[in-house]
Simulated scan of single mutants.
Amino acid sequence: MRRVLVTRPEPGASETAARLIEMGFEPLVLPLTETVPLHPAIATEQVDVVAVTSPNAIRHAPQSVFDALKGRPVFAVGRRTGEAVRLAGLNLVDDEAGDAERLAARIDAAFTAPAHVTVLCGRVRRDVLETRLLAAGHRPRLIEIYDTLLLEPSDAAIQSVIGEWPVDDVLLYSANGAEQLRRSMARSGMGTKLAAATFYCLSERIAGVLGQDVAKTARIADFPSEDRLLFLLKT
């Protein structure tokens, strides 16, 4: 049975582990980041459309945010985010983008500039979405819902998860997670356990954080979603 290291934060890590078990893999859950709420306040301002960049932006949002945005059209970055939007009772109209670039393009295609775009996002992020929206003449307003903290598992914690046997595969979902993995591999015996592993990444950018040697052999999902990443894993 192939042993697969899952590095994403909870509760997503356990959700992924359950999917891996159903697929016949042995998951090794070692979150390298965690998300925490920021408890933002939301002022009453004009809102034409809402953009949501992660399920965490829904998971950590206070009810006041949902109340303020009720009925507004919501564009989610992907299907998992879209499902979180639906469960929160918001008006999901699109969850097919897959990444920030395409999310901005889909909003721009649906709304004439200047549209007032309320973006529910994390404090740690790339500025792609707001930059693209501004370039297209829209007026994004960012509401930082959560922060991403880096985790530094001890050597003992790593050992308790990985055990004595080599790891066959590693799933990487973010550049922050990849950076923490690189550091852990450098300072502990983890590097030896992952020496022959295949790294599965949501993007080339994530693979690049691990260094050129890994990036050359990493497998990159053809679309930035977990469904495509797990499909790649089983092929």
Rank of each mutant, 00 (worst) to 15 (best):
M1S: 13
M1P: 08
L5E: 10
P11K: 12
E15P: 04
T16K: 13
A17P: 12
I21E: 15
E22N: 13
M23R: 15
P27D: 10
L30A: 09
P31K: 11
T33I: 15
V36Y: 08
V36T: 11
H39P: 00
A41I: 04
I42Q: 02
A43Q: 13
T53G: 03
N56T: 08
N56C: 02
N56V: 01
A57L: 07
I58G: 09
H60C: 09
L69I: 08
L69K: 09
K70C: 07
P73Q: 07
R80T: 14
T81N: 09
V85P: 11
R86K: 15
L87Q: 15
L87N: 14
L90S: 08
L90C: 09
V93W: 01
E101F: 04
L103R: 02
A109F: 00
A109P: 00
A109W: 00
A113L: 02
H116D: 10
R123I: 01
R125I: 04
R126W: 02
V128C: 01
L133M: 02
A135I: 05
G137V: 06
H138G: 04
P140I: 05
P140G: 04
I143H: 10
I145C: 05
T148S: 11
L151C: 13
A156S: 15
A156R: 15
A156G: 09
A156C: 11
A157N: 11
I158E: 12
I158S: 12
S160T: 14
W165M: 12
P166I: 10
P166H: 09
V167Y: 02
D169E: 15
V170I: 08
A175W: 00
A175C: 09
G177D: 10
E179H: 08
Q180H: 04
L181R: 03
R187S: 14
G189H: 08
M190K: 03
M190N: 03
K193P: 00
A197P: 07
Y200S: 06
C201K: 10
L202S: 11
R205Y: 00
A207P: 07
R219W: 06
I220K: 08
F223W: 06
P224R: 09
R228W: 01
L230A: 13
L230Q: 12
L232F: 05
